[in-house]
Design a protein around this nucleic acid. Structure first.
Length: 390
DNA sequence: TCTCCTTTGAAGGTG
DNA sequence: CACCTTCAAAGGAGA
């Protein structure tokens, strides 16, 4: 869109994120009091990317591993960077300049997958900060849904990457920076409260012309995010949790992504029963996904919708309606996510999950399924383009 | 039971 | 380099 094009080539590969989302002619809202220009955000994003690129060597895992030590200083570096950001953010989440390090930065074992070595190896040590917790912490997708009585400190040099065998240097001193969110990223704070009422005048907060009660019992209280992230007593170091980036051997994800490749010869099958199932390392969430994760419940509460497709549409619109500062927070958070992910899985590639169903035990079936899916999508796109041409 | 839907962004692949 | 494809989350709907 024109706004960004004037920005001069600074992009995150997400040039369209500031496209004014005009749907149903609903938003002329340009956040007038906003001191930022489109360019500002673009610059900010650009700087974020640049920093990422500086921190990550373009080349290989070996190089990345070498950076792990150096990234210890990342917190400081990041703070420097954030200084620039937070100066421009009023009342934003970064206002908590007092945080010595990024709260969830580099929690070493956060991503540890299941391992045959230790059944609890995918647990993460977490320190709950009951006071003054960085609000952004709540955005962490690495939530806690499943606690385990496993000891807080786990062997960190487990060969977590079964395929890589990389020995990682793990910095335990960072292990306290993850905090938990119950059911997702939950609590961003009042500063992130809805703009939608003003953003979509004449429309429901859902952005739909639908009738519903805005006095939903849960809605107002939800906006204060009463539930918590603060699990456990203050300052306590609870037990580890599995990392959401790791798909456990049971459950839907695994069902879809792992068991997709379950068809194998009986012998192999028997063998696999012995072996721990190889967890699928999920992609780190991008900014929008983080946003969705946080806001989904709220939209559900406000709109009494449950269908994800509809909710996501609303969230997409709200995303575009967000101020640059607010979006920037999520971009920053997503960047952290990627960095953390990269640190923990230096050799992981997004492509690993392209073929998640056919990796590991990779049966012919899963391979076929994957191809089928791919084909289906392609056909669909061709269909739609054909329709457009008519 | 499985896949689709729907969104944005990141990353990999291809020409 | 531009473009295309896939995958992240989520849960209801429909095949």
């Amino acid at each position: 869109m024109p706004q960004l094009s004037s920005g001069g080539g600074d992009d995150l590969g997400a040039n369209d994120e500031m496209i004014a989302f005009k749907d149903e002619g609903e938003q002329e809202e340009k956040i007038p009091e906003n001191a930022f220009t489109e360019r500002d955000l673009a610059d900010l994003k650009s700087s974020l990317v640049n920093e990422s690129e500086i921190n990550q060597s373009p080349s290989a895992a070996a190089v990345r591993r070498g950076q792990q030590g150096e990234q210890r200083g990342y917190a400081e570096k990041h703070r420097e960077h954030l200084d620039g950001v937070s100066k421009q953010q009023d009342g934003g989440m970064y206002k908590a300049a007092g945080y010595p390090t990024y709260p969830f930065l580099m929690l070493p074992d956060a991503y540890l997958p299941n391992s045959s070595v230790s059944p609890s190896s995918n647990k993460v040590s977490v320190v709950q900060q009951s006071h003054g917790m960085h609000p952004l912490t709540s955005l962490l997708p690495y939530s806690n849904e499943h606690f385990s009585p496993s000891p807080p400190h786990l062997p960190l040099d487990i060969d977590m990457s079964q395929k890589t065998g990389v020995h990682r240097h793990q910095s335990q001193d960072l292990s306290g920076y993850y905090s938990l969110s119950s059911g997702g990223v939950g609590q961003i704070a009042p500063s992130m409260s809805w703009q939608s009422q003003s953003v979509y005048p004449g429309l429901s907060p859902c952005g739909f012309r639908q009738t519903y009660s805005s006095n939903l019992p849960g809605a107002s209280s939800y906006s204060r995010f009463p539930h918590s992230l603060m699990l456990g007593p203050s300052g306590m170091h609870p037990t580890g949790i599995p990392h959401p980036a790791i798909v456990p051997p049971t459950g839907k994800q695994e069902h879809e992504q792992y068991d997709r490749g379950m068809y194998v010869k009986p012998q192999v099958e028997a063998k696999r029963e012995k072996e721990p199932k190889k967890p699928v390392i999920k992609k780190p969430l991008n900014a929008f996904m983080l946003y969705m994760k946080e806001m989904r419940a709220k939209v559900i509460a406000e709109c009494t919708l449950k269908e994800s497709a509809a909710i996501n549409q609303i969230l997409g619109r709200r995303w575009h309606a967000l101020s640059r500062e607010e979006q920037a927070k999520y971009y920053e958070l997503a960047r952290k996510e990627r960095q953390l992910h990269m640190q923990l899985y230096p050799t992981w590639s997004a492509r690993d999950n392209y073929e998640a169903g056919l990796s590991g035990v990779a049966g012919e079936k899963s391979k076929a399924d994957w191809g089928k899916k791919k084909r289906r999508k392609r056909e669909k796109q061709q269909d739609s383009s054909a329709d457009n041409s008519l």
